[in-house]
Amino acid sequence: MELAFFEAALTLYFAAAVVSIMELFKGTKTTSRIMMGLTILGFAFHTANIIVRYVNAGHIPIAGLHGASSFFCWCIILLFLFLEYRYSIGLLGSFIMPMVLVLMLSSAVLPRKIEQLSPVLQSYWFGIHTVLAFTGDAAFALAFGVGIMYLLQEHFVKSKHLGGLFHRLPSLQTLDEINYRLITIGWPLLTLAIITGVIWAESAWGTYWRWDPKEVWSLITWFIYAAVLHVRLIAGWRGRRAAILSIVGFCAVLFTFFGVNLIMKSIHSFI
């Protein structure tokens, strides 16, 4: 059941990603509606999959890279749907759905077994800490997509190549503002995730901070986004530089997420 839901979601996201890329080249209202329809349907199946896994595991189903990456996608799509509903930013899907597809595919190839949490980790802190971290990261993922859109549009305006994409992409100001807003959502969530993580570590392992690679990389990520906000407020770094920083920041997020688990040894290996 759970598997069927996941496959259905993956297939629909795949279709949505294909349509979203087509939209980049020749977009109409119909293509964007089809893309949104596929995404919403896929999201419904995805939600069902997560609920089934939740019931089976008895906790948020993010132990193991498969579950973690799948849940991460779910958060991204949730936020994406919210943004579309609230601002309806043209072409955002074309930059988000392919990324979601890659993450979902990586989730699909990773082992799907629901890992049992070791007894020391079983506490309500697990739910709070992970949900905070994932939603924060989802906001950064969207900021990354919007940042790329900004750089593209900025390139068009600067170089005076005003083709079809220029007309269909949102204005620079809109993109910059949304990028900023996403980071102001993501950064406090990440801050809280780190704080709750520290508290949880103390209750589970007896130490607040162990300089574990995952902890270190989370901290690096945190500093990057703190810098984005800081230089924006102090020196007015906006536009291109802010967009580049949000892209760099997301690379750090991805490394914290996957890189640490795959390359380094971490006590955080359950996700």
Binding site: V157, F166, S171, Q173
Partner: peptide, 21 residues
């Protein structure tokens, strides 16, 4: 009827892609 075909309209169109409003 899409896209500006006079210099002053082109300027307004561009301004709208830099500033939203």
């Amino acid at each position: 009827a899409e896209n500006a075909v006079s210099i002053s309209f082109a300027a307004v169109e561009l301004a709208k892609k830099i500033f939203t409003n």
